[in-house]
Design a protein around this nucleic acid. Structure first.
Lengths: 241, 241
DNA sequence: ACGCGCGTACTGGCTAGACCACTAGTCCAC
DNA sequence: GTGGACTAGTGGTCTAGCCAGTACGCGCGT
């Protein structure tokens, strides 16, 4: 009689689950059920160990896991406190932001950012802007990768020079929409060839104002630049409906 | 002789750093330096404890932290193996956005957004704002989850009512920083108890302006609201250095 | 020569207990 | 009202021990 075929009755693979994970999972579920509201404290380690029938060390390991996962904060002498979880909101799909909307938002913030950059910029910031401009100049058309990277980089470097990381994040976010198919279609349909040269000339003026620490002029030149891009959009928009 | 002025020589707040974090950080750095390549094994717990001059328990706690952080996998009887790290897109990571920076950026954009909301809002937008305000009113203190959700929701609904998805994304992004430990610490240290009632009163005024389709007043009341919060931050900031 | 079982040394997993530093509250003296 | 002492509780770190699993070497049987 041959031995039974091992593939005939497939048994599941058993993976041992670390005790700390079991404890952390259990506590996570209880927290989600509202047993331990945000801001409240878990029972003390010794009490938890007793209730769960495990050692205090295992409870502590679970606490480490929960803390690293950002679910609790361990306060010595006080207890382990439940942290609020960052609520994930449904982010609008990038395609929801139209090119006009993105440009409008940029028009709202980038002049102010340019003004702050004129005040707060360092030599290193100026050099970074120049590198971005040089990169942009390497591209023959706005479709070229180097043109786009340089264009984006120039604006981002200005946001960095402003000294406010929140501005940088906002600019970055708005520029993310530059690479959406809709935006690219807008550009290829609406942008005249001379727009590329105009953009670079306008960048040079913005750069000069920032280099000269002229906040008012930096804001004005940035406003003019974005208005010019917007105008190209709006003027050409009636052609595509 | 009166006691020395506590604000005269401000000493830094000393935060004890857990041993497990120190060990985990050290190992993380060594991994990054290439001392432990991907796929290789760290020294055994007992050996590490000896080399680092700490107890094996502390090493184990650090291993838990590294495992939860996805940097290693702990293989019983075998050792602790370095995991490959998922390559982040080379997005430039801005420096931490401080509470003042986030508020400053909000001050730049939210009055304009409120003005646009006054123009473009619908009845549904108004109802959503009202729901957010009611949710906020359910919280007793700014630490309460419902208060924070309502607060955030109110501002987000205004951004939605503006009709520009780019504004919504920007507001959302800035409000994400509301839930960072630093921002919460700012709030708990600097915000007076009456600020919560003031905030809700100011929200009511903003809402009224938007409901009345009064763009100028919507912008003005929003500006006043954010200025008041900023003032509370700036006024109290000198107290913590 | 090859395969299997056993023993050994090593690994991590978990328990138990001890002691320490810090926190918070209470009480008392000044 | 303030400061100090005391108490009871919290988490933080350490030591020691034992167990289960892994890997390897060696000896023995086929």
């Amino acid at each position: 009689m041959s031995p039974p075929d091992p593939s005939a009755a497939r048994l599941p693979v058993i993976e041992p689950v670390r005790l700390y994970r079991q404890i952390a999972t259990l506590l996570t579920e209880r927290i989600a059920q509202g047993l331990f509201p945000v801001g409240s404290f878990l029972p003390a380690e010794r009490a938890l160990a007793g209730q769960l029938g495990v050692s205090r060390t295992s409870v502590r390991e679970a606490m480490i896991a929960l803390e690293v996962a950002g679910k609790v904060t361990i306060r010595p002498g006080h207890g382990v406190q439940i942290l609020p979880q960052v609520q994930e909101f449904p982010l609008p799909v990038p395609g929801d932001v139209g090119p006009i909307q993105a440009m409008e938002a940029r028009r709202l913030i980038e002049p102010r950012i340019a003004a702050k950059a004129a005040t707060n910029r360092s030599e290193a910031h100026l050099e970074a802007m120049q590198r971005a401009m040089a990169l942009q100049a390497q591209g023959d058309t706005p479709k070229d990768r180097t043109y786009r990277q340089g264009d984006r980089g120039f604006h981002l470097e200005i946001a960095r020079a402003s000294g406010n990381a929140a501005y940088e994040i906002m600019v970055q976010k708005l520029w993310d929409y530059r690479d959406t198919p809709l935006f690219e279609r807008f550009e290829s349909l609406l942008m005249k060839p001379e727009r590329a040269a105009d953009t670079q000339a306008e960048h040079a003026e913005i750069f000069d104002a920032i280099a000269q620490r002229d906040s008012a002029r930096a804001a004005k030149t940035m406003q003019h630049h974005i208005d010019a891009v917007l105008a190209a959009f709006v003027a050409g928009k009636t052609d595509i409906g």
